[in-house]
Amino acid sequence: MGNMKIKVKSAGGIAKAKVQAKHEMLTYDAAKKKGKDANFITHIIGKVGDKVVYELSSSQFLAKDPLFKFEFKTDGLKDGDKLEMTWTDLSGATETDAKKIKGLK
């Protein structure tokens, strides 16, 4: 926990989210030079309750500590609902972090 920085704010039926995951995002080339195994986030998913609001399959070419900005509709959501982000990397490790969506009624 605490691996991700999540900011999510709702206004006018749309929530804007900004997520930064802390990850080295080591490419195959860079890993070879450092004598380590390549490792990078391969999949990230954002959910509110059971509803998927964001989903990305990614390669090694996302920047280090990658940033994800996106928007989603907030109809049906209520105060106290949280945005839950989960990533999986090439080694199979996963991290989940959640944050309350601001501005919901």
Binding site: I14, M25, T27, Y28, D29, K51, V52, V53, Y54, E55, L56, S57, S58, S59, Q60, F61, L62, A63, K64, P66, L67, F68, K69, F70, E71, F72, K73
Partner: peptide, 26 residues
């Protein structure tokens, strides 16, 4: 620009808004 060309694939949820920002390496 990179050895492999794919960077990312988003699955847009039903009724989702496409307004995606991320940072990439080249």
């Amino acid at each position: 620009a990179n050895p492999e060309s794919a960077v990312a694939v988003w699955t847009v949820p039903e009724g989702g808004i496409v307004n995606y920002t991320t940072k990439i390496k080249m």
